[in-house]
């Protein structure tokens, strides 16, 4: 985000000067000067004179890289469409959805919520440990977060085994089509999140994350929290709400 600050600073600066100009010149000079400001901002960035500009306030900071947040938003949008599709499909046949929802293992779903929430908690503790340069605690908490993810997968595999063992498949009915595809789509995201945690863990063991640079850790952590956030909607929606 800091990339945008120098130009916005310049624009506001020029807006002030435009307001102070005579009225007939105001708009014209504002347009000209804002182009000039944008150009100057680019030149400043290219010549790395940013340091001479006022630093953005330390409390307004997006953790991790901008790219991971764009990716997270795209993923969340895909899940939003999926959640809405489930809810509106249910509106066409609430009786069917209510009947087959009863066959789901709510205890397993709730246990998995606890596992993901706790996994997320360990990973935020890893980020906090990096910020206070508590080296070994970073890797340890990432590993604990990974184990919670592993627990989630084990519970889910047992749940799927029970359903598939009973002869249930995607084509059994609309409810099971949504249940299997929605939870499996999420399942894949848990696996990707765990792959990311392995990469973070290997880096953390080398002492890569410190108070000076925890960007990579923050980016991976944000993805892991997204996996948690999605399940927080998915669990009540598919397992409980009727």
């Amino acid at each position: 985000m800091s990339a945008f600050r120098p130009s916005s600073f310049c624009l506001f600066h020029d807006l002030d000067s435009a307001v102070q100009s005579p009225p007939n010149f105001a708009f014209h000079s504002y347009c000209k000067s804002s182009y000039r400001a944008a150009g100057l901002a680019i030149i400043r960035r290219m010549t790395t004179l940013d340091a001479s500009l006022p630093a953005p306030p330390a409390d307004k900071r997006l953790p991790g890289d901008l790219a991971i947040w764009v990716f997270i938003l795209a993923e969340m949008l895909a899940f939003a469409v999926f959640f809405a599709a489930y809810a509106f499909a249910r509106a066409h046949d609430p009786a069917l959805f209510n009947e087959y929802q009863q066959t789901l293992d709510r205890n397993a779903g709730a246990l998995n919520t606890l596992l993901l929430v706790t996994g997320s908690w360990f990973v935020v503790r890893a980020v906090q440990a990096a910020h206070r340069d508590a080296g070994p605690a970073v890797a340890r908490n990432i590993l604990l977060g990974f184990l919670c993810g592993g627990g989630f997968l084990v519970v889910k595999v047992f749940e799927y085994a029970a359903k598939f063992g009973a002869g249930i498949s995607l084509s059994t009915n609309t409810f099971y089509m949504f249940y299997i595809s929605l939870t499996f789509f999420h399942f894949m995201h848990v696996i990707l999140g765990m792959v990311i945690l392995v990469v973070l863990w290997l880096q953390a063991r080398k002492g890569a994350y410190t108070s000076a640079n925890a960007h990579g850790l923050e980016s991976g952590a944000a993805y892991w929290h997204m996996v948690d956030l999605l399940w927080i909607i998915l669990f009540p929606l598919v397992y409980v709400m009727r």
Partner: peptide, 18 residues
């Protein structure tokens, strides 16, 4: 969800847009 966003993702102090 809000707790995850603000305290786990640590967006409490992020730019308003996010």
């Amino acid at each position: 969800g809000r707790l995850v966003i603000l305290d786990f993702m640590e967006l409490r102090g992020a730019p308003l847009m996010w």
